[in-house]
């Protein structure tokens, strides 16, 4: 455990909690892509099946349980409890264009050709693109609530901090996982445009709105 990984995990946790609280307090999931949230629930489920097979640490297990629990709670709030506020018309990204190629890639490029390992690889690839329906929704409506941008910033920072973690682990532990690193790079690059808007607009007190 190093500082980049810990702050990355906490940033990830903060993102998840911010989103849950935003929906719960406003009693609305307007502007949130339910499709992205379903993809994240699939990501956590596929990746953390090792909860049943291996124990790493109390920290590791509890974070996994919290991430999975929160992901399903978010999906429940969007598709059941506050379904009336869900903006399905603007959440029109075709997720099969992500899931199918990512599934194929996981079968072709993985560390070990075993069911659990392929599911882990699938989750890593899928996570790197799971935010696309949300970014697509924002580009379609042309705006995002400020609290939604805080969520996206924390979520983007999480994988960015993991990149530093991987550099650290490579130098000090000789550890590297090429699949995670390449997918993490892709994931971080997808947020670059958003990071720019967050710094130039949201941090200066303006609402995030895109030119028509």
């Amino acid at each position: 455990m190093n500082i980049f990984r810990l702050t990355g995990d906490l940033s990830h946790l903060a993102a998840i909690i911010i989103l849950l609280l935003k929906i719960w307090k406003s009693r609305s999931c307007a502007g949130i892509s339910g499709k992205s949230q379903i993809l994240f629930a699939i990501v956590f489920t596929a990746r953390y099946l090792d909860l049943l097979t291996s124990f790493i640490s109390v920290y590791n297990t509890s974070m996994k349980v919290i991430y999975i629990g929160c992901a399903y709670a978010t999906v429940y709030l969007i598709y059941a409890k506050f379904r009336a506020t869900y903006d399905g018309n603007h959440d029109s990204f075709r997720v099969e264009f992500l899931v199918v190629p990512v599934g194929g890639l996981a079968v072709l490029i993985n560390h070990t050709f075993s069911p659990l390992e392929i599911l882990w690889t699938f989750s890593i690839y899928l996570e790197s693109v799971a935010i696309l329906p949300q970014l697509f929704m924002i580009s379609k409506t042309g705006e995002a609530e400020t609290i939604t941008t805080h969520y996206l910033f924390c979520l983007g920072m999480y994988r960015t901090l993991y990149l530093f973690n991987w550099v650290w682990r490579f130098y000090f532990e000789g550890f590297f996982d090429m699949i995670a690193i390449v997918a993490g790079l892709v994931q971080t690059v997808l947020y670059c445009d958003f990071f720019y808007l967050y710094v130039t607009k949201v941090l200066k007190g303006k609402k995030l709105s895109l030119p028509a």
Binding site: R5, D9, H12, R47, D50, S54, I56, N60, M63, K64, Y67, H111, W120, Y162, N165, G174, F175, F176, D177, M178, A180
Partner: peptide, 10 residues
């Protein structure tokens, strides 16, 4: 080196 003992990251 890939960690053969499993994935220890989240």
């Amino acid at each position: 080196e890939y960690n053969i003992y499993g994935h220890d990251e989240l």
